[in-house]
Design a protein around this nucleic acid. Sequence first.
DNA 1: GATTAAGCACACCAACTTGTGTACTTAACG
DNA 2: CGTTAAGTACACAAGTTGGTGTGCTTAATC
Lengths: 194, 194
Amino acid sequence: MTEFDKGPQGLRRGRGARERIIGASQQLFRDQGINRTGMDQLCAAAQVSKRTAYQHFANKDELVAEYLRRFDPDVMPGVFDRPDLTPRERLLAAFEMPETTPLCPYIAASVELHDPQHPASEYAREYKTAIAARLTQAAREAGATDPEQLGEQLALLIDGASARTRVLNRDSFPTAAAIAAVLIDNAIPAPAQR
Amino acid sequence: MTEFDKGPQGLRRGRGARERIIGASQQLFRDQGINRTGMDQLCAAAQVSKRTAYQHFANKDELVAEYLRRFDPDVMPGVFDRPDLTPRERLLAAFEMPETTPLCPYIAASVELHDPQHPASEYAREYKTAIAARLTQAAREAGATDPEQLGEQLALLIDGASARTRVLNRDSFPTAAAIAAVLIDNAIPAPAQR
DNA sequence: GATTAAGCACACCAACTTGTGTACTTAACG
DNA sequence: CGTTAAGTACACAAGTTGGTGTGCTTAATC
């Protein structure tokens, strides 16, 4: 019984070792941080031998990069894929944080790795840019006079709430949402609001 | 030649050891991060023997805590000690970041140490609270209707700019300052503005 | 049944970490 | 002078890290 796909060449055995590795990294990197999570512990959690892990990922850095790539800016916190909301509501939805993410993993990775050249750091930059672009687009749809500016501002608010939540150990997203509401109302000319 | 550093060969004894250690930690922790800076390297940079370092600080954690304590919320970036500015200008002055601080060391420490119980993490929380309190006070002096709210909002903007600057490798404080201007003008009733 | 890819168990390595122990040297001071 | 506080140099312990080498086992396909 093949439980799984039999690709033209690839045959997945057991149960997706690669997926388990990434799954374990998502949990451990988030809970303990990247630097404080050793490959031994990670492999144990993934129920994968260390040897196998290093056959899937050349080194830890590459695993970290792949771990970050798994977060997709298009599926943020269900912000841009909700046609039931008005544009304004969609912009505000970005501040309902899924409390599974105590600190944006990109900020964490940038700080922990401490190397702007690191592939993960570079992807973090891409991601942040993508998020701002999505917000800009939503701002445009909402009729903002300067969508770029509003998008960048909202992105900054999200990062601020994320960082502050981490340091203070207290949810700062409501504060950010309050600011966002002010900015949005200021940026959208009255006739377009509803 | 009395009590000052002087010695036959590079022997800086007398009274500077502790200060040199902290000085080196300020530079290295900022440039390389805390976890990536070993005590060996730090002692070499401070021109202090490792033994001496451990006579001044029980362990690295304590050094990290002391390193953070050296940042004083009262002397932020010369924000609250400038009677030449109007209250409004004083609030905005908080966003002229001294570019010597790429990322607020408290956010960095919180992320790197990854332990809310760590003395440095706890001090980071105190510091952030103190900053918000100072901003709240300035907001009150500026005549804001809800100074607490404005202070908290401005603090969040600072953190957002700090985090975002780090991740994007691009100064985000102007964006934060623009938001701050909007918030301030919205929070201060017209007659009180000047 | 043979082949083959994927994985496992486990020992092992080299580098690096924080932190000590020990014996020696210097400067200040009464 | 002698005492003492501060510091040095250096070896070393004990732990952790990322990463390999090797031989063996499984399961699906040929």
